[in-house]
Amino acid sequence: MLEIITFSTLNGVLYGMLLFMMASGLTLIFSMMGVLNFAHASFYMIGAYFGFEISRRIGFWPGFVVAPLLVGGVGALIERFGLRRVHGYGHVAELLFTFGLAFVIEELVNMFWGRLPVDYRVPPSLDFVAFKLFDTTYPAYRMFMLATAVAMFVFLILILKRTRVGLIIQAALTHPNMVAMLGHDVPTVFMLVFGVGAALAGLAGVIAGPALVTQPSMAGLLGPILFVVIVVGGLGSLTGAFLASLLIGLVQTFAVAINGSLFDLIGPTATTIFGELGSVTVAQIAPILPYLLLVVVLIVRPTGLFGNRET
């Protein structure tokens, strides 16, 4: 039991940090531009594929550095030549633009790399066992992922708290109109934020690709969960996004470890009241728990746990 708790905590935190790498960019983009970017998880996927392509040609480490930059560039270009054009048509059009974009990106990835998972390997320099606890090994690569995520988190905090751009972004989180009125070049800041957000998602993809599976459906799997994270955390709140990421990471990991069902909890009455649902185990419904959380949080507190804006 202790073994399961230890490893579930580790894996849950890791998954949560991975979510946060994407959610941070997504929530920044949303707060500043009002766009819920459906294609955000697609940047994560492109990151993984760029990382794979570079790693098989040059090596993992060049890919680790270059791929996120490339993804950031792609993101900035999409903002400059696509999203900005749609901006005038309102938020719904922007949202639908990213919705279509996610679709096209998935198809392009299908075309270039095929529909089957690609062979994106953990670099040999990290392919060893980090530690062994209760007879279960924990790979060094996962520790590396965790370290990268934490480093990125610290880096993001420093930028936001210590730089001028960070100040503008922070101001724009709560008072986007006022920032524009103060005469800042808002379109460029938008492009920058969109590019950086994409690059962060790309970085998450580069490091998650070898540990999970790099395949065209990886964006579709994560996309909706990201929305859950930023909405539950509170739109526009980085702290909220961070805590919600960890919460969802841990909830999903721990739910898997629980075998119990309503039937086990309250006995046969469960099946009389809930029918088949009475015998469904917590582990079975692990992936839908985030959505349940989403709906409940929004009903009870439409601003999310830490947010103060609704739209």
């Binding site: 819920l36 949202l95 909706p224 929305f227 859950v228 909405v231 739109l235 029918g275 088949e276 649902l277 469904v280 079975q284 419904i285 992936p287 839908i288 959505y291 349940l292 989403l294 709906v295 929004l298 009903i299 439409p302 609704e310 739209t311």
Partner: peptide, 26 residues
């Protein structure tokens, strides 16, 4: 109860919940 993004997100969540329950309630 809310419009805009909150409404969109609730419908997204409800949609996922219903399709997941559809597979559980055989």
């Amino acid at each position: 109860r809310r419009a805009g993004t909150v409404f969109a997100m609730i419908t997204l969540g409800l949609g996922e919940l219903v399709s997941a329950f559809a597979l559980l309630m055989r």
